[in-house]
Design a protein around this nucleic acid. Structure first.
Lengths: 170, 170
DNA sequence: CTGATTGCAAACACTTTGCAGCAGA
DNA sequence: TCTGCTGCAAAGTGTTTGCAATCAG
């Protein structure tokens, strides 16, 4: 029995990996506004700014870093509003929240994407996002066996990347 | 684009599902003692009690519920010691920590088990643990493509269980 | 107009940590 | 004896919430 891997602190600090393209603002803003309208919520300047900032993010990001982005761009942005908006963006199907540890959570744009899955290097903390058709098929198969209707999934694979292996030998 | 599923509060409260058999104390205690000795740590009565309590758990559990178990059994057990011991049990490869949300974490005995994967009902909050050989093969394949050495993985599938479907129709 | 929204700061809740006394090996 | 361990309470930290003023529709 081997020692159970633990997520390294480095992951909490700065998850990095292949950087997917930035998502386009217009169509997602339309989705957001439709959602807000349906829920009798309002489209405020703050929400627009936050959505813009979210869409400028590539890959995983943290609430705090989003707030920093906004401040750097000269916009006021209270943590509270950022969190509240991130929550709405999830409900609108634009974002999803990912949990790698119990300290904080990460967010990621999902609208129009398929990547739900991560390769996480236990040595360097690097996170690579990927998507697998085979995995989705297997997921559906497993769901059928249990009578589940699949909605979504999330796979985290922990391992050692080539760089991590090199670093450990070095 | 469908609305992004969010983990229901019920999951945070009382994850339940198929109950795997309780793990045997003796062999795992031996593993723990070996680990402690190797790390120049001590095998204390508190650690023994906590390991026992852990092994009486079936499926996922929370640190707090473990502390309650201990108190109910008439043992003093400070949160601090429980957390510290849970951490050692992870390092010893006996436990693993699972993150479903950012509020708290769950623990699960993994020594000698293969089940790393969960089917989570978004309607009822029920969690079913399962293990799939095909998934492990697919994982290894994906790792090969990225030059990773796989260490472990975790798959969370969100969906609607038969019971949930019935409840939603009712 | 009227109810939703915002920023602020206080509140939360799980977890970690500092410390002084205690106890395995 | 010599470290490591324990319980306690305080600190830590990402996130949430109450509230009064403000604003979108």
């Amino acid at each position: 029995m081997s020692e159970q891997p633990r997520i390294l602190p480095s992951i909490r600090k700065a998850p990095a990996g292949r950087q997917p393209a930035v998502a386009p603002y217009e169509p997602l803003c339309a989705i957001f506004r439709r959602y807000l309208h349906k829920e009798k919520l309002k489209f405020t300047p703050e929400r627009a700014l936050i959505l813009e900032a979210v869409l400028r993010k590539t890959g995983l990001f943290q609430a705090e870093s989003l707030t920093e982005d906004l401040r750097r761009a000269g916009h006021r942005a209270s943590r509270a509003t950022v969190y509240r908006t991130l929550s709405h963006l999830q409900d609108a199907g634009i974002l999803k929240q990912v949990f790698f540890d119990n300290k904080q959570s990460y967010f990621e744009v999902v609208a129009g994407r398929q990547a739900n899955d991560y390769l996480i290097c236990l040595s360097t903390g690097k996170v690579i996002e990927f998507s697998s058709q085979k995995l989705r098929q297997l997921r559906d198969e497993i769901c059928r066996e249990h009578g589940f209707d699949p909605v979504s999934h999330q796979l985290h694979i922990y391992g050692i990347s080539p760089e991590g292996r090199a670093a450990e030998k070095g």
